[in-house]
Design a protein around this nucleic acid. Sequence first.
DNA 1: CTGTTAGCGCATTCAG
DNA 2: CTGAATGCGCTAACAG
Lengths: 380, 380
Amino acid sequence: MRIVAISDSTHSAVDGKKTSLSQPNGGNGARTWTMSDIAEATGVSVKTVSRVVRGETGVGAKARERVSEFIAKVGYHPHLGARSMRQSMRDCIGVVIPARIDEVPVSQQFFTRLFAQLYQTFGLKGKYLCFDMNPYERGPADYARGLWEQRFSGCVLCGPLSTDDTTVHRIHASGAPYIALGRLDSFPECSCATVDYDLAAYQSTEYLIKRGHSRIAMLKGFEGYQPGVERLRGYMRALDAAGLAYDPKLVHSASFGANDLANRTYRLLIESNVTALIDASGAEDAESIRVGCQRAGRIPGRDIELLSWTYTDSAAVLKEACAHMWLPVWEAAVVGLEQFAEWFEGKRQGPIQVVFPPTLYEVVTKGEVQKPQHLFELLG
Amino acid sequence: MRIVAISDSTHSAVDGKKTSLSQPNGGNGARTWTMSDIAEATGVSVKTVSRVVRGETGVGAKARERVSEFIAKVGYHPHLGARSMRQSMRDCIGVVIPARIDEVPVSQQFFTRLFAQLYQTFGLKGKYLCFDMNPYERGPADYARGLWEQRFSGCVLCGPLSTDDTTVHRIHASGAPYIALGRLDSFPECSCATVDYDLAAYQSTEYLIKRGHSRIAMLKGFEGYQPGVERLRGYMRALDAAGLAYDPKLVHSASFGANDLANRTYRLLIESNVTALIDASGAEDAESIRVGCQRAGRIPGRDIELLSWTYTDSAAVLKEACAHMWLPVWEAAVVGLEQFAEWFEGKRQGPIQVVFPPTLYEVVTKGEVQKPQHLFELLG
DNA sequence: CTGTTAGCGCATTCAG
DNA sequence: CTGAATGCGCTAACAG
């Protein structure tokens, strides 16, 4: 067991010179060494110490060894704040939430997968991950503040973008590497990795129209966010292509915080002549849909045809549904993160554009998915 | 939609003065403003700008408004590197892994709960969480490097400590607020929030002895880590108290990476005269234990008595077990994190010492827990 | 109430 | 191969 040597004969000259303000907790702790301390103690110049620390050439073998040993002995580490004033922080990736964390359904599953992926891509290479949880304490905060503050030099926007988001434009304009796990109509150049929700809605609607339905209801999530807009647009396009009129009463938005999915389902199903329902809520909540159907006196497969969206390949949210739309959100994120890592490391240029198409299944192989638990639900 | 105004008549004088090195990606991005830029543009001194930014008194209403507006307009943010040279970083908490992430069983459940808790405690207050994944690329890395580098000024050590850990001593000596989710025999002063595994092992063994067993096997995890040491010590103390001899053949360590739990169980059970088994592996893997029993030709409750450890209140890993030991690891972490937050904010002193006792259940109310999925299993 | 100035620790010229 | 000097953006002590 070796504790940092506080006093050492080699540098008795600098003894008690100053109590650095930047000491962790300004107390009885071990002293914080600076390059000039090291230089003084080892009898070389600051620049030589710098060369050794940064592994540069231009230092004699003897001097290098002496400095290296001393550095190891006292446990010197360069001050990153000081370093960041001369160069950008290329060892820290920001992970920021561009939406209220309790407004969007960040599932436990998705979050831990994302974290594991970030661990593999960056953590294993010794890089830091810096999370900014975007508190929204007094109005929407600037979720990219860590970038402006130079805390990190690139970031992952983890979550859907609000339709009126402007921050992502500023990130883009800054030239910093970034990737949004979601796109934005108003900003097609946006660096992103996501799924084509518009197409998913279009194909869902088209499928049901082909099966003879003309009064198709849709339960959609993400009100106020881009994925919500895309759902509606794709739905309307499909209706339009089939020459059907759009009835706003047939589209409801469900919020994730309140558990009103069953209620929304019920209300949609008692609308006149509704014969089919697209569950594009993203909640993956079979029970609520079932309860809603039951309360409306509808039996799936007989009185009402269901089509539900899932984030899992070949899996169903509702066994009773006639078809299942798979949104490869995770798969897009993986590809996007790989490309982002290359951009961050300077091996490629940005922006990234990964938009995966959805896949419609009629037969499911993996059974029914569980209702996911969301991050904010774990609290108190 | 408003993009940062690049050129503005108010400050045409400083036009094109310099291209700061610290620009995010040194390219076509928007310019990075400094305090002196703001000062020059608004006709005040740097100190006045500083006062406005930091919300200090001593600025006239007119000047304050002018500066505030300009700052908002150009999207100025203080450079944290520069700031960190004068004061410690009190808005960033390090979350570091003091063990190889693939050597210890960080369950998805525990991890997301921890993250949610950190979000609530720090994220909501606008603080950053900086994860260092401790790569171990070339030999064990210094998992507290973020502290030495002044990247953060306090940290949570998330995971068990290695028995030969020395880094935590240095963290302690630095005076920085920290909390280890695990303790260390060799370092009783260590700031920690954990469970008394020694007591859990003692009580488990004692319980089985009282039920008439004298040949008690133990399956333990965390070889090389403190919780592993405590398991063995508690087990041995109980044997000793009852005047029984310790037989090393009756204690096996299971590693988490390899799935050898069933095999270990089998091997323990074919040992001569073993009549009871403590599953202190921490794997919460009922299936492997069952397979091991079956292969050894033992039927739980008849040929062999099982006692399994769980991390969930009133829940069982194995329904067949005669008793269940609950280790309130999570509960200790919550209390510890609260105290850590207060220490970090200067509202109390360290170190923290939260050591929860385990609880033995004979009757279980919440049913059988699922085998947890671990973070590293999500990769690949 | 406001401004001037001296560093913080490091990387980077530019000289030896 | 080495070192002295400069400045990054900010805060704080010290003047007005």
